Amino acid sequence: MTAYRVNPYIKLALGMCIIGSFVVVNKVLSASVPIFLASGIRLFIGALVLNAMLWYKERAFPRLSRRDFLIVFIQSFVGVFLFSFCLLYGLKFTSAVESGIITSTTPAVIGLISFLFFKEKLAAHQLTGIALALAGALVINVFGILSGSEWSLSLWGNLLIFGAVIGEAVFMTFGKLLSADLSPLASAALTSTIGCVLFLSVSLVQAAQFEIMAAAPLTWGLLVYTGVVVTVIAVLLLNQAMVQIPAGSSAAFSGLMPVSAVVLSYAALHEPIHWYHVVGILFVLAGILSISRRKRAEVSGEGQQKPVSL
């Protein structure tokens, strides 16, 4: 019983950390590969792997009702296409500090969507966890500004990053509207495939103007990473976790995205970590600990919930 209670939170935490790494990886990729082409390649690789896994495991592709298809398409358009577009272009128009502050609102947006669309009553420990995670993410970024970073009001870039926040929030919550018989693997394969199709036309145009086959080995390695680790592994981890975890509880864990981005920026890009980064990370971890303290009765009912999908 203990493993059943812990495993979903471990999966959710790992999935959010991988999404945080996606931000860092794309800082490198966006300097050498056109945005639509990079996203198209990522989703093409992910769709191939996920559909192969789906056929191997379930021996059939799911038949969707009109309602399920509409939900999957909305998820694909908002949570895959618009998320990638807004995040990658937003990072070009605004600073990392500004984008970090805006992504810090993700827990609050997820909690709001959970309340408005799923009528989830947030318990005290959930509200506390969301507040702590939001406070931690804000500490990381606000004290970064006060320590000497410049605040350039790039309205267009800021709006794009907030669009990515909405896309992630939809990804983390709206899959609960899908039919219970649609597996997490099937929903992940469908959304990746539809997302690939949405990026296809512009990706082909950019591919014709860019010598992708001459790209450096590091570039190809990062593209494969985003296709396999981000699009396949992270999505499956989040889908499997959200079968058992209410959407409101996932809000605090989304705070791991900016935290992991800070840590990976230090490790991979050699950006400095300051005291306020450490304090912010501790706040987020405290929020996750608060959310994870669920009563046994709550955990026993989690299996009745539907999977989320990207």
Rank of each mutant, 00 (worst) to 15 (best):
S187N: 11
S187L: 12
A188Q: 08
A188T: 14
A189H: 13
L190W: 14
S192A: 15
T193Q: 07
I194F: 13
G195F: 12
G195D: 04
C196E: 08
C196H: 01
V197Y: 09
V197K: 01
L198V: 01
S201Q: 08
S201H: 08
V202L: 02
V202W: 01
S203G: 11
L204K: 06
L204V: 07
L204N: 02
V205Q: 05
A207R: 00
A207Y: 05
Q209W: 00
Q209A: 14
Q209L: 12
E211T: 12
I212P: 05
A215Y: 08
A216H: 14
P217V: 02
L218Q: 13
L218M: 13
L218R: 14
L218P: 00
W220P: 02
G221L: 06
G221K: 10
L222P: 13
L222Q: 11
L223Y: 07
L223A: 03
L223C: 12
V224P: 07
V224I: 15
V224W: 06
Y225V: 14
Y225F: 15
V229R: 07
V229M: 09
V229A: 11
V230D: 10
T231R: 08
T231E: 08
I233R: 03
I233S: 05
A234I: 01
A234Y: 09
V235F: 15
L236A: 10
L236R: 10
L236S: 07
L237A: 01
L237F: 10
L237T: 04
L238F: 11
L238S: 11
L238I: 15
Q240L: 05
Q240M: 09
A241I: 07
A241Y: 01
V243M: 10
V243N: 10
Q244L: 05
Q244C: 09
I245M: 01
P246Y: 05
P246A: 04
P246C: 10
P246S: 05
A247M: 07
S250I: 09
A251G: 09
A251Q: 02
S254E: 11
G255F: 15
G255M: 12
L256A: 07
L256G: 03
M257G: 03
P258W: 04
V259E: 02
V259L: 12
S260L: 02
S260F: 12
A261C: 03
V262D: 02
V262F: 02
V263E: 06
L264W: 12
L264N: 10
Y266T: 13
Y266M: 14
Y266C: 15
Y266A: 15
A268K: 00
A268Q: 06
A268C: 09
E271A: 06
P272S: 06
P272I: 01
P272D: 14
W275I: 15
W275H: 10
Y276E: 12
Y276Q: 13
Y276L: 11
V279N: 03
V279A: 15
G280Y: 08
G280D: 11
G280T: 12
I281N: 05
I281W: 00
I281F: 10
L282F: 05
L282N: 10
L282G: 08
V284A: 04
L285S: 00
L285D: 06
A286H: 01
A286Y: 00
I288A: 07
I288Q: 02
I288P: 03
S290E: 01
I291T: 14
I291D: 00
I291N: 04
S292L: 00
R294F: 00
K295P: 00
R296V: 02
R296F: 05
R296T: 08
